[in-house]
Structure formats: structure tokens, C-alpha cells
């Protein structure tokens, strides 16, 4: 990491000799930049490759020194081991459904609330905002004890309701949409609509929703990813292997008395692959969403 930093400093030094850096004016890009970026890409991607290498060689291979750096042919066996230990494909299906439902609900309720908090004169708005910000800052784990007890009383343990209901809307989503709506919706447009006599709902449906659809999509993506990757709560709440989500299924392999490294990594890889595939399609939108949110935030 230090090497990379030095490279970057030399890059900026080199490219900015007499004149100061101007990002708007294009200047020659030094090869060191590409080297640094390639290195970062390699670091970002290597663990996935490594997961596959470990999973496709046997567990004995892992303890070889030097470790083999190339994949072996053992992957189908490993998949077999995984599916025998846990209904893995079912877990992927469960997770896909739960994540989608939560993402859609989250987007829906967040847009509603975000709009109201951004543009409407709702009584008590300021107080609400402060209250929400304050609570957002506390780690989520604080409430887990109580939540678990509640789920126990409601008899929602091992039921998907325990996963979905607590997650259908969140403060982060509401804030995100509030910021987006605040910045993307000019007040004049709103004023004009009001003068025309439009009801609040009409304004929401016809003006707000179409405008924020791209941002809402990004929120949905984040929500989907977050739910897919959530580990602690589902592992507490789900007991039946048929109900497991992907992360819980992975921990099943991690939990046996003797950890089978190949199966462990294989499961982790299989659990991530659907996201990687999704990322191929929507990755650019995600990147755009992150950057958009950065400026607005």
C-alpha cells in the first residue's frame, strides 16, 4: 500500500511540474497512473480468484507450501459437498425473494417519506429529522436482544416475516430520497403544480416519482445488496435449513467441527456469484448512484 501511495505522489508530482493540477484541463496521463489503477483492480478482484482456486483444489492442496496459485478440477465435487450439507440453491432462491421484496418496499416507503420530508410542510418535520439522525448513529446491534425476544413472542422465529418486516423501510433510504428529491426537484415546478390546483398525491405521482426513478433504482440496488449480504440477523432468526438465506447457508459449512476449507470458500464464492452477475448489468448505475449521492450528501 505504501508503494502505491508513493507511486501516486510521484504521478501527481510529475504531471504537475510547472503548472498546478487542473482537473478540468486534460493533461497527459502518466503510465504510473495506469499501473496504480491496475494494481488496485488486481487487489479488488484477487480474493474472488483465490476463492475459486481454493475451492477447486482439494482441502489438502491448501496446506501445501508453496500453495498452488492455479485452479484445479475439483470444483464440481466441492459443489456436491456444499449441496449435501445445506440446500444451497434453495437458499439462493430464498435470499433472492426476500431481498427483492425488501428492496421494493424500501424504495416505496422511502420515496413517500423522503418526499414529505423534503418538500412538504409537515408539522414537526424538524423534530422528526433530528430524532432520526440521532438514532441512526447508534450501531444496529444494540437493539438485537430486544428484537429477538419480540420475534420469539410473536412466534416469528424461523419465519421470513422476521426478516422482512423489520427491514421494509430504513432511515438511510429515507434520507437518501430526501436529499435526491430536495436537489432534483426545483421548487418552482412544485409551486406551478400547486397553483394549477394539483393535490399532493398528484404532485407525488406525476412529478416526483418519474424524476427520481433512477435514484430510486440505485437505492433499491443498495437495499438488495444489503439484504443479500446480511448475516447476523438471519442466522439468529432462521433455524430450518430450508429457510436459510445464503449467508446463513455459508456459515453452516463454517460451523462444522472440522472446517472443510474448500467447501467453505466454495460456498462463499457461490453465494457471491449472483451478485457479481447482477453487478455486470447494473454496476455502472451503482457507480453513478454512489457518486451522485456523494455530491448531494
Amino acid at each position: 500500500m505504501t508503494a502505491t501511495l508513493e507511486q501516486m505522489e510521484t504521478t501527481t508530482q510529475q504531471s504537475a511540474s510547472p503548472k498546478p493540477r487542473r482537473r478540468s484541463i486534460s493533461k497527459r496521463v502518466s503510465p504510473f497512473t495506469y499501473v496504480a489503477l491496475t494494481l488496485m483492480t488486481f487487489i479488488s478482484v484477487f480474493p474472488f480468484y483465490w476463492m475459486y482456486v481454493v475451492a477447486s483444489n482439494g482441502s489438502e492442496e491448501i496446506s501445501k507450501i508453496p500453495p498452488s496459485l492455479t485452479p484445479g478440477g475439483n470444483f464440481p465435487n466441492v459443489v456436491n459437498t456444499i449441496t449435501q450439507a445445506v440446500p444451497f440453491w434453495h437458499a439462493i432462491l430464498n435470499t433472492a425473494i426476500v431481498s427483492t421484496v425488501i428492496a421494493l418496499c424500501n424504495v416505496f416507503f422511502s420515496t413517500l417519506a423522503g418526499f414529505a420530508l423534503a418538500k412538504l410542510r409537515v408539522p414537526g418535520k424538524r423534530g422528526m429529522l433530528l430524532f432520526i439522525i440521532g438514532t441512526m448513529m447508534l450501531p444496529a446491534q444494540l437493539g438485537v436482544i430486544f428484537m429477538y425476544m419480540v420475534m420469539s413472542w410473536l412466534n416469528w422465529i424461523n419465519d421470513f416475516k422476521a426478516l422482512v418486516v423489520p427491514a421494509i423501510v430504513g432511515a438511510f433510504g429515507v434520507f437518501w430520497m430526501r436529499q435526491i428529491i430536495d436537489s432534483q426537484l426545483p421548487n418552482e415546478l412544485l409551486e406551478a403544480a400547486r397553483i394549477d390546483g394539483a393535490s399532493v398525491f398528484r404532485i407525488y405521482r406525476s412529478i416526483v416519482v418519474p424524476t427520481v426513478l433512477p435514484a430510486a433504482f440505485v437505492l433499491g440496488l443498495f437495499s438488495f445488496l444489503g439484504t443479500w449480504n446480511d448475516y447476523l440477523w438471519p442466522s439468529l432468526v432462521l433455524n430450518d435449513p430450508e429457510r436459510f438465506t445464503v449467508q446463513v447457508a455459508i456459515t453452516q459449512l463454517n460451523n462444522s467441527y472440522t472446517v472443510d476449507y474448500a467447501a467453505n470458500m466454495g460456498a462463499a464464492l457461490l453465494g457471491t456469484t449472483p451478485l457479481l452477475l447482477l453487478f455486470i448489468f447494473v454496476g455502472r448505475r451503482l457507480v453513478a448512484g454512489v457518486m451522485e449521492g456523494a455530491v448531494k450528501g
Binding site: S24, R28, S44, V45, P47, W50, N229, A268, G283, V287
Partner: peptide, 28 residues
């Protein structure tokens, strides 16, 4: 830098670690 080639590729590649689960990362 506006003259950077394949800028979308670099940006997208950098986001890849973020989509994995913490559990998978910890295992690796």
C-alpha cells in the same frame, strides 16, 4: 483526470469489493 482511458472500467472495478458479504470476505 479527464484524459484517463477506460475510466468507467476502473470505477466499476473498484466497487466490486463492496458488493461481497462481510462473511465471505472474512472467510477468505
Amino acid at each position: 483526470n479527464a484524459r484517463l482511458r477506460a475510466s468507467t472500467f476502473w470505477r466499476t472495478a473498484l466497487m466490486i469489493p463492496n458488493i461481497t458479504s462481510v462473511l465471505a470476505v472474512a472467510i477468505v
